Amino acid sequence: MSNSQSLEHRIRAAEQRVAGTYGLTITERLVTLRAPSVQVRVLTTGSGAPVVHINGISAPVLGMAPLVAQLPGFRHILIDLPGHSLAPPYSWQGRTVRELAMGVLTGTLDALDVARAAFVGSSLGGLFTLWATLDAPDRLTRAAIVATPATALPGSRGIAEMESLTSPIRGGLDQRLMRLPSPRFVARFALTEAIGAPAARAMSDDMLDLHRLPLRLPGQAASYRSLLCRLMRGRTPRPENVLTDAELARIDTPVLFVWGEHDVFSSPDLARPSVTRIPGAQLVVVPSGHAPWFDDAPRCAALIGGLLAGHDTPTTESEHRHA
């Protein structure tokens, strides 16, 4: 068995254990698209109205299992974007990232014969979801944006790892280092900067493996760096990836933002002026970092479940602030 096959076996075994931990029965499908010419990995669980989940950059979509498990009664469609987890590598070149993202999302929905769905996007997935509300609004019923939606809103910033990876001098070295074996405690420490210490400590070893092992597969670290370089320059989002006030005002999909008060990529207060420009959008601040469902999955699920059911989000000052 080759090293790549061994890694894939370990990743799949960890996925099975994570799914079992949260009581999820997962069906896997690899979807081949033409425009762009990529392959998307889709995991499906449950039955009912469709809810599409989109992963953050370099993160596995099954990392959202703690949240999915708290939302019964839906057909959950978990999309591993190209170059993520076990989805084949992809360079994200040729057209704008926004155009590529829309091709991936709409093409995947078409392949699955899903006309419209609710979307739950985390980080990069939140950016893709907000783009979809503007460029493919007929495909979304509702949208939950969990944590800072990558570069979408003014004021967001990258972390040190992103600055290093996008550097012409250090980026190539960092990319090669990602492919080297390392102990779990190193990966857990690295995740701490991005998602916060409590969430990183709470992550099981299997969940941690789903985050760290895919980057060692051929092409995945290069995919991560390529996409990151198209989104950011150092720690600063590239202007073309930031939504304008006029675009925000055009969004008419019901949107809920679930934002950790300690989110390292942007604070809720920085986000609030942009969120208020989206008609009817709600901003709920929860006591967490950039991955709120690792800190409090039931709370996040209750908020998102309310959105999916069409309920107004309740405001309780002791738990969160409302935009």
Rank of each mutant, 00 (worst) to 15 (best):
Glu261Ala: 06
Met203Ile: 09
Asp245Pro: 02
Ser167His: 05
Ser204Val: 05
Ala222Lys: 00
Leu180Gln: 12
Gln175Gly: 03
Thr244Arg: 10
Pro254Asp: 00
Ile159Phe: 11
Ser226Arg: 00
Glu193Arg: 12
Arg201Asn: 05
Val258Ile: 07
Val255His: 00
Leu180Pro: 02
Leu180Trp: 04
Leu153Asn: 14
Glu193Trp: 02
Ile145Asn: 09
Phe189Arg: 14
Leu248Tyr: 03
Leu213Glu: 09
Leu180Ala: 08
Glu247Leu: 00
Ala202Trp: 03
Val146Asn: 12
Ser223Asn: 00
Ala194Met: 11
Leu243Arg: 06
Ile169Pro: 00
Glu161Leu: 13
Asn241Phe: 11
Leu208Gly: 06
Glu247Ile: 01
Pro149Arg: 14
Glu261Tyr: 02
Leu173Val: 13
Phe257Tyr: 04
Arg157His: 11
Ser223Met: 00
Leu243Asn: 10
Ala194Asn: 08
Pro183Gly: 08
Gly155Ser: 14
Ala144Val: 11
Gln175Leu: 05
Phe265Trp: 03
Arg184Ile: 07
Thr148Val: 15
Phe185Glu: 03
Leu256Lys: 01
Ala197Pro: 02
Ala187Trp: 13
Leu165Val: 04
Phe257Trp: 01
Ile195Pro: 09
Gly171Met: 08
Arg212Tyr: 07
Arg235Asp: 08
Arg176Val: 10
Arg216Glu: 08
Arg212Ala: 15
Met178Lys: 13
Asp205His: 06
Ala190Met: 12
Glu193Leu: 03
Arg179Val: 11
Arg233Gly: 07
Ser164Phe: 10
Ser182Pro: 01
Phe189His: 11
Arg170Pro: 03
Ala160Cys: 07
Asp206Ile: 04
Arg188His: 12
Arg212Val: 09
Arg238Met: 08
Leu243Ala: 11
Ser182Trp: 02
Pro237Thr: 06
Gly171Val: 07
Met162Ala: 11
Glu240Trp: 04
Ala246Asn: 14
Asp174Ala: 14
Asp245Ala: 15
Val242Asp: 10
Val146Ser: 12
Val258Arg: 01
Phe189Gln: 12
Gln175Lys: 07
Leu153Glu: 14
Thr244His: 06
Phe257Arg: 02
Glu247Thr: 01
Pro239Arg: 10
Arg170Met: 11
Ala221Cys: 00
Glu193Ser: 10
Ile195Ser: 09
Leu215Trp: 09
Val258Pro: 01
Val258His: 03
Leu213Met: 08
Arg179Asp: 06
Met178Asp: 12
Ser164Pro: 00
Leu180Thr: 06
Ile251Tyr: 02
Arg235Pro: 06
Leu227Val: 00
Arg216Met: 13
